[in-house]
Amino acid sequence: MAAYARPTSLREALAALAEGPAVPLAGGTDLYPARVGRPPPERVLDLSAVAELRGVTQDADSIRIGAAVTWTELIESGLPDWCRALADAAGEIGGPQIQNRGTLAGNVCNASPAADGVPCLLALDARIEIDGRRTLPIAEFVLGSRRTALAAGEIVSAILLPKPRQAARSAFLKLGARKYLVISIAMVAGAVELAEDGSVAAARIAVGACGPVAQRLPALERRLVGGRLDPDLVRAEDFAALAPIDDMRGSAVYRRDAAMTLVRRLIGKLRDPG
């Protein structure tokens, strides 16, 4: 393949990749910053014009977010309220320049521990569509820091959000050391389905930047189901499986402590969406 290709169909994109290794490129907001002072990759496969990767569509079962859809397009696509976590996260990614260019798919493929999209997708039980052919649950897609289940020559074609079968809500909260343009010290996302009587029918609560990959909190989720959305249900041991690190942005102790505060507030926000 040439040094730079910008195919317009998925078939052409896959064919180009079959010719030899190339680095996929969507918005470039992770790719270029990783190469300051260095030339661009030798072979680039620009996915931004691939028709099948564009647009937010839906069918009876799910919402499909094309891999080339930017954060701004996501915000402007009018996502339903149960996707609020994702819309809120989109509005807090970097600044407008980054939202106008960066994609949710790129965020997931880049697999940074601090990727704001990932906990949202865990909470929304998303599936990652690969090459338009197969899908994987998000938890099986992001395998570690900067590691995904993509094999060489594969690309993500879309992200699928299954539609809840009953009333549902979601929310996202991010903690950073300044107002804008900030990498999360920790972030949390949650989604709940509510039974007719207002009790919690299903809950998924995820925490990011507190380990190599964002994680759900199964013990807390079980405790929430069947009852009310009560922040006091959150316990310190719910966070035992997290593996936060000490870095410039905060200590491991702090991250664990902050994650607990954020999850409590998240549950409050899910209860009173405002």
């Binding site: 490129l25 270029y32 701004t72 407008p96 320049q97 260019r101």
Partner: peptide, 9 residues
């Protein structure tokens, strides 16, 4: 739309 020219191929 505003974008960072340093990130646009």
């Amino acid at each position: 739309r505003q974008v960072c020219a340093c990130l646009v191929p």
